[in-house]
Structures are given as C-alpha cells and as structure tokens.
Simulated assay, not measured.
Amino acid sequence: MLPLEDDARVAPVRWGWRPHWATDRAAPINARAEKVAHGPFFRAIWPHRMLCPVSGWFEWVDEGEKRKQPYFIRRRDGAPTLCASIGQVHDEPQDSDGFVIITADSLGGMVDVHDRRPVAFSPALAREWLDPATPRERAEEMLAAGEGPEVFEWYRVDRAVGNVRNQGEHLVERVP
C-alpha cells in the first residue's frame, strides 16, 4: 500500500459520480481517458485525483454461446491493481460524493477479452498521480503510460459470478 502523505487519505466512497446538473442520467462508474480531462461532464472533479485499488475485475465475452462467458482479470504478480480515478469526497459524507475509474483502450492482448481496461499505475506512477504538485498536463499524459497487458492475466470463471446472490472466493477460480 502507498504511504499516506499530505492530504491523502483512505475513505469509503460510492462508485459512480455525476455533476449536479446531470439529473437526467445515472451516475457513470467509468470515464474515458481520451475525454476525461477536457469534457464538461468531469470538469469539476478532474483536479481531484484518486486511486482505486482492486484485486481484479470481471469482463463478459461473447463466445458464440447462449450466454456470455465471464473472465477474471488480475495482475500476474497478485498485487493490487492501482486504478487511476477521479472523484469528489467531503470530510463529512454527502450525497454528491463519488468517484469514477478512468479507462483506456485495451492495448493489444487484452482486446480479445474487452476493448477497454482500467488505467493501472505502477506504485511510482501512482505516487506521481496523487501528488498535488503534478501538473494537469502531466496527469493527462500519465493516462497513456499505465501498465500494459503483459502485467495482467485473464481466465474463464464460473458463470455464477453473474448473479449478485453468489459470493465467495470460488468465483475467481479458473474453469476449463
């Protein structure tokens, strides 16, 4: 885990955010790296950089069967994936708090599973991402410098993962 410095802190925050004026749609959970720094939707939270550590994520692939096949994607070394995120968090939780994970093109090898992926940082880039002294332009460049597909592995898992009533570590085990 990264050391907490300056204003950095760990806080439970709802996944999903939208500006106060966008009441006609659900709060998105992801933001495209290509647009996040310049579009009006995320303008208010672009300066508020965060990390969302995850052990992995699921993607569903159409393999020509009746139902899509779920895959689990994680770092090969088992370390948490440090996902580039932006959001809004207050000291006292508010309804407007939330965050989004920034996604980018899958870059080659992962495209057979999904065409987008979270922007994942090495610990060194993660520290730079969180550093308030990192200029906005550099933060935008960093979104293209995330870890590539060679850092990750992906494999089929049981379709039971698609039902929220199913819980447990068995959901991330490989299936033939």
Rank of each mutant, 00 (worst) to 15 (best):
F99M: 09
D77S: 06
W15H: 08
V100Y: 04
E59C: 01
A8P: 05
P118M: 00
W21R: 13
L107K: 07
A104Y: 02
V10D: 03
M142L: 14
C83F: 03
A120H: 01
S122C: 03
V89T: 05
H90Q: 08
P132M: 07
D6W: 08
D6E: 15
G87A: 11
A11Q: 14
T103W: 00
I73G: 01
L4G: 12
A120V: 06
D105Q: 07
L171G: 03
R74L: 10
A11M: 07
R127N: 11
I29V: 09
K66R: 15
A22F: 10
E150L: 13
F72K: 06
V119W: 10
G162I: 10
H170Q: 13
I101K: 02
P135W: 01
A126N: 09
G98Y: 00
I29W: 00
D115F: 03
E141L: 08
D115A: 05
R43Y: 09
G78Q: 08
P123M: 01
D24L: 11
V111C: 06
E147H: 10
M1S: 07
R138D: 04
V119A: 00
G168D: 15
E5H: 15
T103E: 07
T23E: 11
W129A: 04
R156N: 04
A84I: 04
T134R: 00
I101M: 12
A33D: 05
I102V: 08
R67D: 13
R9A: 11
W57T: 01
L171C: 14
V36C: 00
V119Y: 04
L82G: 02
A120L: 08
L171W: 11
M1G: 15
P149G: 12
V113T: 09
P176C: 12
D131I: 03
K68G: 04
E169D: 15
R67I: 09
V89S: 08
A126L: 14
P132L: 02
G87P: 04
A22W: 09
P28T: 05
Q69D: 02
L143I: 11
E128C: 00
D158E: 13
A44F: 05
P132F: 03
V100W: 02
V157L: 02
L51K: 06
G109I: 08
P123T: 02
D97H: 02
W60R: 12
P28V: 01
I29E: 12
P176V: 15
D91Q: 03
E150R: 10
I101R: 00
A104I: 07
T23H: 10
W129S: 00
I101Y: 01
